[in-house]
Structures are given as structure tokens and as C-alpha cells.
Nucleic acid binder design. Structure first.
Length: 325
DNA sequence: AAGAATCCCAACCGCAAGTTG
DNA sequence: GCAACTTGCGGTTGGGATTCT
């Protein structure tokens, strides 16, 4: 399987295409079809390799290419197919008329992937993130919150919110632990799609904290479709959490959420600002002001420099654990 | 206003499957 | 069956555009 030597040839132009080159390529293909891409450049009078011409044609010049922003429907289609097909961009592109694999790939890498990460979902599995380090922002915020609580007198309302916040954060952490354990316990041959126990069913978690999870495809469903050919129009309806399409940007979502102990938590008149954390607004795993930390800190790359981690006993005291066992 | 940082996407690279002689 | 060649694909990058400080 030798590699094509065409791109190694010297003297062939690289880089952005000029309008003149585009014109030559378009005219030639419209007249003769592309035929052999290797032979095309010479025949069309272009100082490019065939590969470059093919790419330019398929990704940009083809007349049926749809340009402009992706619609919400297209976005949802990409998410659905990606959850099943993974990074098979050309396969996904077949279900989006007028969109190229390159365009979809770019859109995924620049928008959708980030969006999923910000919401606390693993972009590859489309499941809530299970790695410990993805929960670090929450752990750190939790520790900070606790520190803050212990240092400062609170009124009743704030104290109640504190308890809620701590419980919610603990729930998230516990959930991650359970999921990790479950993933390990389940089949070693599992595909990229993880299986997790239905936490609601086993009574560990209850809505609304788990509302985003409950709309995800069930493990049995995912198992049932894995290995099957996906036929256009027959893809089962994988539910992306409805909040995905309503979710404001990370920064927007965080406008009212700041758990870091800093002077700005105190209002102008010296009274503490209200921490807006309701039962229904538990932030996604990575939706904290220190966002990106979860993403940047993979288990292999995070050295934790400059960050003081709370110890586990601090996070999960006996009383808390006994509540859920 | 200007420099820095970040975003975005067209295009490139290299691998592997498919085709041909 | 084998080697040479072609095509398609997915990952990555360079640099212009945009936003932030």
C-alpha cells in the first residue's frame, strides 16, 4: 500500500486557493467530471496536487454544498449520530445533505464538543463524565464553600442554601464514583458507550438532581443498537438533555453561581450575597467559574499545582455516607 | 488604541482501504 | 497473491478574524 507521491512532488502550490484556481477547477470538472484526481491538475492547468484539488472540490466548490450556520435540527442530528457512530464524520455527513464531513468535524470540535463538556458530558460517550478529575472543580468549589461557611456567620436562609449546595455537590461526586465503579464492573468488552446503573431505580438519586440523566438513552437501549447498521431515518431517538439546546453559554450560566471565597461574595453593605442555587439548577459538572479545569486536567496531565485538594473524609463524612447506604 | 488571547475553519498530513494490472 | 497506485477518511495545524484586557 504505497502512499501517493503526488503531494511530495516539489513545485506544487500549497495553501489557500485563489479565485482563479477555483474557476479553473470548477470549469474543468463541470466540463469533464473529475475523472482521475491525480491527472486532473495537469489537464485543468493547475499547479496543485490531485489531493488538494479533490479536497477543494468536495469541501468548498461542489455546487450542492450548503453554507452558513448549522441549524438546531442539524445540530441535533449530529449529536444523535455521533453518539452512535463516534467520529465517523463521513458517515454522519451522509445524513446531513449539503454538509461536508470536514465542516461537521470542525463544527463538532469548535462548538458541540465544548458544549457537551461544559454541561458535564463526556463528548465521546455522551454520558455524564465519570472521571474523578472532571469533578475536581466541584470538589474544589465545595471545599471553598465549606471554608467560607465555617469562617463567616450566616443567616438562616443562607445556611439552608449552604446545606443544599453541599448535599448537591456530594451527590454529584457520589454519582461519579458509583458510575466509575459500575463501568468497571460491567462487561470489559463494552464499546465506547459506557453502561451505568439506573441510579434513580436503585434509589440513590432522585429528581430533580438527576433530571438531566433521566433523559439519556438507557444502557439497554444503547446496547441494543450497538453493532447494528444505522439506516437513514431509522436512528432511534436518542434524547439529548433538553437543556442542551436551551443552555446559555458557560459564562452566562455562571453569572449567578460563584462558590469561590472572595470578597465580592460580600455585598456592598457588608451582607452576604445570596447564593442562587436551587434544587432545580444544579450546575453541570464543569459549569463553574474555574471551567476548563476539568477538561484540561485529565488524569494523565493534571499536576494539581497551586490547588489545594480537600481530603476525602472532609467531603464524605460518615453521616453523609450512611444516609445513602 | 493596541497588543494578547482566543476562536474558527480551510487546508494539509499521513494512514488505510479499495482498485488495478 | 502481490505490489503499485488511487481514493477516502480522520486528526491536526496555520493563520486570519474576532474578542478581550
Amino acid at each position: 500500500m504505497g502512499r501517493s507521491p503526488c503531494c511530495d512532488e516539489n513545485g506544487l502550490k500549497k495553501g489557500p486557493w485563489t479565485p482563479e484556481e477555483d474557476q479553473k477547477l470548477m470549469e474543468y470538472i463541470q466540463k469533464h467530471g473529475h475523472g482521475s484526481w491525480r491527472a486532473l491538475p495537469k489537464l485543468a492547468g493547475l499547479n496543485r496536487c490531485g489531493k488538494s484539488c479533490r479536497l477543494r472540490w468536495t469541501n468548498y466548490l461542489r455546487p450542492d454544498i450548503k453554507r452558513g450556520k448549522f441549524t438546531q435540527e442539524e445540530e441535533q442530528t449530529i449529536l444523535r449520530f455521533h453518539s452512535v457512530l463516534g467520529n465517523k464524520w463521513s458517515a454522519i455527513a451522509k445524513h446531513l445533505p449539503g454538509r461536508t464531513d470536514n465542516e461537521i468535524k470542525n463544527f463538532w470540535n469548535t462548538h458541540l464538543k465544548k458544549k457537551l463538556i461544559q454541561m458535564g458530558f463526556d463528548p465521546m460517550t455522551h454520558r455524564p463524565r465519570t472521571d474523578f478529575f472532571s469533578a475536581l472543580p466541584q470538589l474544589i468549589a465545595l471545599a471553598n464553600l465549606r471554608q467560607l461557611v465555617e469562617q463567616r456567620p450566616w443567616d438562616d436562609h443562607a445556611a439552608r442554601l449552604k446545606v443544599e449546595a453541599v448535599q448537591a455537590a456530594k451527590l454529584q461526586c457520589l454519582q461519579n464514583l458509583i458510575q466509575s465503579a459500575a463501568s468497571i464492573a460491567t462487561s470489559p468488552s463494552s464499546s465506547s458507550i459506557n453502561t451505568i446503573p439506573d441510579l434513580e431505580q436503585i434509589g440513590l438519586l432522585s429528581p430533580p438532581q438527576m433530571s438531566s440523566l433521566s433523559s439519556l438513552p438507557s444502557p439497554s437501549f444503547l446496547e441494543s443498537i450497538s453493532g447494528q447498521d444505522i439506516v437513514a431515518g431509522q436512528l432511534p431517538d436518542i434524547q439529548i438533555p433538553s437543556s442542551f439546546f436551551e443552555q446559555p453559554t458557560c459564562n452566562d450560566a455562571n453569572q449567578n453561581l460563584d462558590f469561590t471565597p472572595k470578597s465580592s461574595v460580600e455585598g456592598e453593605n457588608g451582607t452576604p450575597k445570596t447564593l442562587l442555587l436551587s434544587e432545580n439548577s444544579l450546575p453541570p459538572l464543569t459549569d463553574f467559574p474555574i471551567s476548563n479545569l476539568g477538561d484540561a486536567c485529565s488524569a494523565s496531565s493534571c499536576d494539581g499545582s497551586g490547588i489545594q485538594f480537600p481530603s476525602w473524609p472532609e467531603l464524605f463524612d460518615e453521616q453523609f455516607l450512611s444516609e445513602f447506604v
